[in-house]
Design a protein around this nucleic acid. Structure first.
Lengths: 232, 232
DNA sequence: CGGTGCGTTGACATTTCTCAACTGTTGTGG
DNA sequence: CCACAACAGTTGAGAAATGTCAACGCACCG
């Protein structure tokens, strides 16, 4: 895998999309490709930060291990996403742990030198990274907003509304990118509660749920729930 | 208020701390000082972004208005904090609303031109802003982690542990920077639940709570709760 | 001194969790 | 290719935490 093959990959990343070819080539020279099995650890929180990563295929979860042994999943990333670039530029230590969730998962590993050099040499990289960090910040703010809502059904409705969906006639179809167990944790509820919510909405006749697919027959119900309507 | 008076103020800001004096002077020339009463709106979400702000005195809350009229407080800022700088560089629109919470609240308003010029001219500003954004990102991740915990007492314990405190003998004293009503909203619980938790812990004899002051007599109880121990 | 709003308390309703059992799917090894 | 193990998901019953509603005290501000 040489720089020629890596270049189109890098150009897909939000941080580098706007950069000229020669700079992308420069950074491609410092990359390594890692292939992981599900469960493999990329790094642990508090590890010294040696590189940042881009997901080429598969999936990666970022999580924090809690003192009682539970783990809190902070984010789940798929192809095209990058992570830990901020840690590389600032803290020197990773603030979260990262592990692959699929087999195989291919990661592009970018060391500090090319990135730091780039940062100095191209003044467009700074604003680009600020932009991409800002978008994550906004996404996190939305997640906080979502979690601050007290009713479990409202949290789920809000989450569903923010998922990418395709239309099939008048029903919108959402493919769950997470296992239901993980989705439940993400929404601060138990898998049982998630299961019961989906069942109740199904019995009320306005969603269909099969495997990892949710079909919303009446979107206005979802919006009403997300806006705080009691779910009767 | 001329650049000479503004300079020491700017040097206190995380983004500009490391910059040489001449650049700070340059940016100080583009600043305005605004004095607000409690409740005054600084900007509304979706407003076009004209400037970013630094808090000189008083307090500012960032919040999102929800469709049903409730408002979700995203953050509360005091002297030394900056906000909206990322929006200024990237989105063109504010993602949240901002309003003063105290009378008087003094804000330093920094327009886009000096900041953008600085960004181009000094390659240290980019990494500095990335660093400061990263710290906010980490703080938000911690808040998500906090909110993802199901037990209200555990959420409160975690929040208390992250607050600045001064030691008084073997007890740590925490001054609440928020009204209890707002703290409850911040922790996704009702004011009643917050009140009952503090009372129960007081009856159990390991905290004292008066007005906006909480004295933790036995810190290990707090840590145990934050680590997921049942609160009996 | 009277209002306005925060904070507290109690009684009650409800949601949500916990625990346990069961089902279905997936992947593995014989 | 089948049997079996492991695990996600579902369901039910009961318990516990937390929200709701209403009333009251208390501080702060005009």
């Amino acid at each position: 895998m040489d720089a020629t093959e890596l270049r189109p990959l890098l150009r897909e990343l939000p941080h580098f999309r706007a950069l000229p070819a020669d700079l992308v080539d420069a950074i491609a020279g410092g990359c390594k490709l890692r292939t992981l099995d599900a469960g493999a650890i990329v790094f642990l929180e508090r590890d010294p930060c040696r590189a940042f990563f881009a997901v080429r295929s598969g999936g990666v979860k970022l999580y924090r291990s809690q003192p009682d042994g539970r783990e809190q999943v902070v984010n789940i990333l798929h192809a095209g996403a990058t992570f830990a670039e901020a840690a590389l530029l600032t803290f020197g230590r990773y603030p979260v742990s990262a592990a692959a969730t699929e087999s195989p998962t291919e990661l592009l590993e970018v060391g500090p030198e090319p990135l730091l050099r780039l940062f100095r040499e191209d003044e467009r990289l700074g604003p680009a990274m600020v932009a991409s960090l800002s978008m994550r910040l906004v996404a996190l703010v939305e997640r906080v907003e979502e979690l601050s809502t007290i009713q479990a059904g409202e949290r789920l409705a809000r989450w569903l509304l923010r998922q990418p969906s395709r239309m099939d006639g008048s029903t919108s179809v959402i493919e769950l990118a997470l296992a239901k167990k993980e989705l439940a944790a993400h929404l601060a509820m138990t898998p049982e509660t998630l299961s019961r919510l989906l069942r109740r909405w199904h019995e009320d006749g306005w969603i269909e749920s099969e495997r990892a697919t949710v079909r919303v027959l009446r979107g206005e119900r979802l919006v009403a729930l997300a806006d705080g309507a009691a779910d009767g």
